[in-house]
Design a protein around this nucleic acid. Structure first.
Lengths: 256, 256
DNA sequence: TCGGGGAAGTTGGCTGTACAACTCGAGCAA
DNA sequence: TTGCTCGAGTTGTACAGCCAACTTCCCCGA
């Protein structure tokens, strides 16, 4: 961001700084600079790739935010690690995540409701009182083993697309994307809860047993809520990782 | 990032874009633009604050990364919410966090070891075999109620500073900062574990009871590890929240 | 051998300019 | 009323140049 200046034009097929970032990411992952090694200077990279220093800085800002490299005024950038941060979609979509770790995702829709939104649900999805919502309950599997139970509410428009899908459709977010529903932002909260009777029955754990809960609210580029979901994972099946830095923070810790 | 150009001179007392970002954050929090409202255009903000558009974009990039506003090409920015994301230090330091939520932090050092680093510990802190480490075990309280147990290992240099502090010193990171130890990056992983005998005794929970675990590795601006810590929270005392977007992702989900 | 001074190198911050891609509403036509 | 086109407005991407603040390292003197 904040590339101030202008020039030759937006991306022909994708912004140049993104391609540069991808290039550097790959180079780092392949160990070209070693762990703890020093990157070339911005000027050198600019000349090597035939772009301006501003563009190089945009690319490096991406890597910086992802925790791949440090940066200090006066000193060359240092490789922190090959922390392969996952894309936005791999965090949003169970299916994308499962595939990215080489597992086979599965899903079974257990229950669907179409009804009037309660006050809380209106608040969560930013709806007016009296709006309709869809509520979907799904059991998610990794290599056919139940891992997670997902309770999602959708506003009318989105839910209508969802219910048209087959009950055992693996992915819900991908068909939505194909129909022009664009996910852009999400807020996730992770904590610990205890299994109720339904959780226990579907996941095959003891009632009252501990589960990792992830609550999520996703919006489109305009800020309109697209879904609100509460996911509950069996212990030991998942962990959540975040990188943050003085320069860039997105995570917070809250009183439970 | 990527402000390309140059100009009038670095910050006199702090970068201008940071002050601008703070200003806008406050304005948003005070509801000046409303939730879902539209921000002024970059050009308008630039004129209003007497800075260039590039600087405005740097400020807005910060808000964007914090999930306060959206941004799409062609449309004005929209206020997403007043999500008060906490600073890097409030996630790194229990003390800072406790104060930020208006609670009284407390701590009691239970045990300190000074010994040879094992192979795993060398790996975690990036040390050579044969290095010395300090291992500190602390019980953390919120308003005198035990909340969390903290097992931290420090490299020789840092640990030597730590052990000079009083056993019931509230904060460890703040004295370090005063002695010139600068924290710059951290990686946090959150999952679920079961209490062992020591956890149960100190936290007053049942052995085998569920706990939220946060593992953390913090480094200085040069990428040198400063501490590695494993914290275990009682259920219901804490939750972790992250905002991510297509443009900026820092969180990832991992197979447990 | 040790320490200080200084110069070169590097990143952070800021401005200005230019063009491309996209949104959105006004206005017009069917 | 509906649907379309068009243009003004807005953000995204990119380049060029400048100065400040900081790190690093060489070199020289004690």
């Amino acid at each position: 961001m904040a590339g101030a200046g202008g020039g030759a034009g937006g991306g022909v097929a994708g912004a140049r700084y993104r391609r540069l970032a991808a290039d550097l990411r790959e180079a780092i992952a392949s160990g070209a600079y070693g762990s703890g090694g020093r990157l070339p200077s911005e000027e050198e990279l600019a000349q090597k790739y035939g772009v301006s220093r501003g563009t190089v800085r945009q690319a490096l800002a991406v890597l910086r935010a992802n925790g791949l490299v440090t940066s200090r005024r006066g000193s060359r950038r240092v490789v922190l690690g090959t922390a392969r941060t996952q894309s936005f979609f791999e965090l949003l979509s169970f299916t994308r995540w499962a595939r990215s770790i080489g597992e086979e995702p599965g899903g079974r829709t257990v229950d669907v409701e179409h009804r009037l939104a309660g006050p809380l649900e209106c608040e969560l999805l930013g709806l007016l009182a009296g709006s309709q919502i869809y509520r979907v309950l799904r059991l998610r599997t990794l290599s056919r083993v139940p891992i997670m139970i997902e309770r999602t509410i959708y506003p009318e428009r989105i839910g209508a697309m969802i219910v048209r899908l087959e009950p055992d459709a693996v992915s819900h977010t991908e068909p939505l994307a194909e129909q022009g529903v664009v996910f852009a932002d999400a807020e996730h909260t992770v904590d610990l809860v205890y299994a109720d009777a339904e959780d226990a029955r579907l996941l095959g754990c003891a009632e009252g047993g501990p589960l990792i809960r992830e609550r999520r609210r996703a919006t489109d580029p305009a800020g309109t809520p697209l879904e609100w979901s509460e996911d509950r994972y069996l212990p030991g099946t998942v962990s959540f990782t975040v990188h943050n830095s003085v320069a860039m923070t997105a995570l917070s810790r809250r009183r439970g």
